Amino acid sequence: MAVLLEAGLRPNHHLLDIGAGSLRLGCKAVEYLEPGHYWATDASREIMLAGHAAELADPARLPLDHLILDRDFTFPGVPPVITHAIAFAVFPHLGLARLQTALTNLRDFPMLEKLLFTVFLAPDLTLAALPFRQRDGVVTHRAKAPYHLLAEDIEQIALDTGWSLNRSETLLPRGQVMFTATPTK
């Protein structure tokens, strides 16, 4: 929640939580946002439903139809009112092609102001070809999960799909790096 608040999230905004899982963020965001302003997608709707039942202080603030099964980053049924989106710890499990798909499809949200997402980075092309030990010890890979990417590849995909990027220097769990993407007009 802290990074979303720093990114300008306000109670009247509409948040899309990509890869929401059991609503670890959702339980905080649903209380902060106006009722019905939180949307979640995940590859498992069952996990989101379990989170809805177990994690929310007031489940009535989050309609069940706001929990959307989405394995392909097509965001089916998510309304165009979304102003902010976050994908925390999603792309380290899926890699560059899935990030590109998400960035491409999120451009369909005309009111989207910011997307926050995390990745693991390798420092250069030589090290990217090898398993790379992140600062907390987790070993990431170019061709299997957990994936690491090159910053220049992320920047190029963002440019190609209509986003400008800002890299955060905030230290995140397991050595992940957060980017804030803003749509270019």
Rank of each mutant, 00 (worst) to 15 (best):
V139P: 11
D72C: 13
H93R: 14
R24A: 05
I157R: 07
M1P: 15
A128I: 10
L115V: 06
L69N: 09
Q100D: 02
A2L: 14
N105H: 14
F91A: 03
L149I: 05
Q176M: 04
L127W: 11
P146E: 05
F73I: 07
I86S: 03
G51H: 05
Y147C: 06
P123I: 11
L149R: 04
L171A: 15
Q134M: 12
L112N: 08
Y32D: 02
H84D: 10
R10K: 09
N105R: 12
E155K: 10
S168Q: 11
L49C: 03
P123F: 11
L165C: 01
G77T: 02
A60H: 15
F132Y: 12
L62P: 02
A122S: 15
K28M: 06
A102K: 07
D65W: 10
I68E: 02
V78N: 04
G19T: 03
L56E: 00
L23S: 07
K114V: 13
A40M: 02
H148A: 04
P146W: 07
L165A: 01
V3W: 05
V119P: 05
T101I: 05
A87W: 14
N166G: 11
L5F: 14
R167I: 08
I68R: 06
D58K: 10
T41F: 10
M1C: 13
P146R: 06
G77W: 03
N105T: 09
T126W: 10
E34T: 11
A60D: 15
G8C: 00
H13P: 01
A85M: 08
A87H: 13
A97I: 03
